[in-house]
Design a binder for these strands. Structure first.
Lengths: 175, 175
DNA sequence: ATTTAGTGTCTAAAAATTAGACAATCGGCG
DNA sequence: CGCCGATTGTCTAATTTTTAGACACTAAAT
């Protein structure tokens, strides 16, 4: 089993922080908690965080999830490599969709099932582990670009910023 | 305004197909419909489809959305470049999350608002339009890999499948 | 104090990319 | 039908990038 490092939990409810702390202590090397997202960017500068579990509502009386979406955006802007899992008691389909489209790794609803939560977080970290080679990424992007132009290699090469001959060469290598 | 090409709508309810056809006819050059996903892969071979709008339930009495998820998976496996938007009357958070994590471009709930639907589909196609250069993709992937190994260039170079010196060169070019 | 892993830098050979050219082919259109 | 523009497949030769390998240096761990 791999080492799951430090998880950062952000929620304004101390009882929930405590519960999550105990729930995650068995799996993660370290569980850091914040009762407000205000200082999250500062924390991310100083600490090496593997995963963030982020509540979505921090303004009293507002449960739209807008706070969470904005903080998600801020975190991903500065640290796109750190997976962020959203968690909220006021979940609806629209909010989940908006969260995932803005780059959340998963979306959890309160109340949560401890085992399921741990399993989902593990899945996220295992997925984040895989790093493709440059050649693989390049090949995939090339395929997309060619598809995008319905097989027109001249146009595909142009938007890819390489010459047509280079595109030929690269395609030959990939059969 | 750009050309929005052909959209393929898949739903087993003829009334809904008709409604969507009229709703989308104003925006898309052509609206194809299927009342079953069975033949979708065959259709995708023969037709040039820009976007798929896929219902999630095709087995009578089963509304888990499992059908839709499986067809989504099949479509994305063979045509990862075609955006798939899911639509269902039996939406819940978990289903939306699973759909988006499997590569759906968006997730719509029935009943839908015509204007909103059209806007969302346009957004999806506009986003699919942007093709980054190979250098941009490469740079982004390199940044991720280096982050993943906390700045260890030797390890990053190894998983990227390039030599450490090459990683140096590429980093120098990107300031 | 010794070992291990990583850095920054260098060389020379090998490989990839480039601009540019060319004839052949395709599709649309009068 | 025959023209035309765009695209393809294929070259060359110059340029740039990548490579393996080496070296001294630093930081961290034993």
């Amino acid at each position: 089993m791999q080492n799951y490092g430090t998880v950062l939990v952000i929620d304004d409810n101390e009882a929930i922080l405590t519960a999550l702390k105990y729930c995650l202590a068995g799996t993660f090397e370290r569980v850091m908690t914040l009762n407000s997202p205000e200082s999250v960017l500062k924390v991310l500068e100083q600490e090496e965080i593997c995963l963030i579990l982020l509540d979505m509502n921090f303004t009293l009386g507002v449960n739209s999830g807008q706070d969470g979406l904005l903080w998600l955006q801020a975190i991903r802007k500065h640290h796109p490599e750190i997976p962020v899992v959203l968690i909220t008691a006021y979940a609806d389909v629209s909010l989940a969709v908006r969260g995932l489209k803005r780059g959340a790794a998963d979306f959890i609803t309160k109340p949560w099932d401890n085992d399921e939560l741990v399993r989902k977080l593990k899945d996220v970290l295992d997925a984040a582990d895989e790093v493709a080679t440059l050649d693989e990424v390049e090949a995939e992007h090339i395929r997309r670009a060619i598809d995008r132009f319905h097989g027109n290699l001249t146009q595909a090469a142009e938007v890819l910023g390489i010459t047509r001959q280079t595109l030929y060469n690269k395609m030959k290598k990939l059969q």
